[in-house]
Amino acid sequence: MANVHHFKVRTPQGTSLDLSAYRDKVLLIVNTASRCGFTPQYQDLEHLYQQYHQQGLEILAFPCNQFGGQEPGNDQDIQQFCQLNYGVSFPVLAKIQVNGPDADPLFEYLKDQARGLMKTRAIKWNFTKFLVNKDGVVVKRYAPRTKPNQFIDAIEAELALLPKATA
């Protein structure tokens, strides 16, 4: 796979979403969970989305239950939780695995493109974030403890490179 735009992911309704629909957009891809100490980052992510969506930022959340069983609900429960508790308006996709033999192919690609601390490939916890440029290339990986507002400069730098028609 040449970039993120070559992947398809599953929506909570079970349909396929082709990530090529996000060409010429800046993506922030995050593995999430509803019962995690980092769950309040949903609020930070929504704030970013509200602030930068019109300029070309898209946020894609991928719920995952691989870390401490902190995302036990089904896709419908997760959607309801995100909407009721955080007013999330960006896409929260179908629940996936990010590590192991059943890891989603998109996350296998992301992990290959941007290693974690000490060059580790595996995702260590919920709310690992990947910033992807308009061409579908992974720019940077951010640790769960790194709050979204801590890398606004990097997001703004990528948004500045978008075609003017997107803005």
Results as ranks from 00 to 15, higher is better:
117 L>N: 09
92 V>Y: 11
127 F>Y: 06
132 V>F: 01
100 G>M: 07
86 Y>K: 07
106 L>I: 07
82 C>A: 08
91 P>L: 02
91 P>H: 05
124 K>G: 09
137 V>T: 11
88 V>G: 10
114 A>E: 02
123 I>A: 01
95 K>W: 12
131 L>M: 08
126 N>H: 04
90 F>L: 03
98 V>E: 01
108 E>I: 15
95 K>E: 05
86 Y>W: 09
108 E>H: 08
107 F>M: 00
109 Y>W: 06
121 R>H: 12
109 Y>V: 11
91 P>Q: 02
106 L>T: 06
127 F>N: 03
129 K>H: 06
137 V>R: 14
99 N>H: 04
136 G>C: 03
101 P>N: 14
129 K>M: 04
118 M>K: 03
87 G>F: 04
102 D>G: 08
114 A>V: 07
81 F>E: 04
89 S>D: 13
122 A>T: 02
108 E>A: 04
130 F>C: 09
97 Q>L: 10
134 K>L: 09
134 K>T: 00
101 P>K: 15
91 P>W: 03
134 K>I: 04
119 K>V: 10
131 L>V: 15
105 P>S: 14
87 G>A: 02
92 V>M: 11
107 F>N: 01
115 R>S: 05
110 L>C: 05
115 R>M: 06
111 K>V: 09
89 S>M: 12
134 K>C: 05
115 R>E: 05
97 Q>I: 09
112 D>H: 15
114 A>M: 06
133 N>M: 03
125 W>M: 02
96 I>G: 11
103 A>W: 05
136 G>P: 00
93 L>H: 05
82 C>V: 03
129 K>W: 06
97 Q>E: 14
105 P>K: 08
95 K>Y: 13
101 P>C: 12
123 I>C: 00
133 N>D: 09
110 L>N: 05
104 D>K: 15
131 L>S: 08
85 N>D: 09
97 Q>G: 10
114 A>F: 04
98 V>Q: 01
103 A>M: 01
102 D>N: 12
126 N>G: 11
111 K>I: 08
134 K>A: 15
87 G>L: 01
87 G>Q: 04
92 V>D: 12
102 D>S: 13
111 K>C: 03
137 V>P: 08
91 P>R: 04
130 F>R: 07
123 I>K: 07
106 L>R: 09
85 N>H: 11
127 F>D: 00
110 L>E: 04
87 G>H: 06
110 L>S: 04
82 C>R: 01
136 G>M: 02
89 S>V: 15
118 M>W: 05
84 L>V: 08
95 K>A: 06
137 V>C: 13
122 A>R: 11
135 D>A: 14
127 F>P: 03
125 W>A: 02
100 G>S: 06
97 Q>Y: 08
81 F>I: 01
84 L>Q: 13
107 F>A: 02
114 A>Y: 07
126 N>V: 13
136 G>Q: 00
98 V>I: 11
112 D>A: 12
97 Q>A: 12
128 T>F: 01
97 Q>K: 13
134 K>E: 05
122 A>G: 03
115 R>T: 15
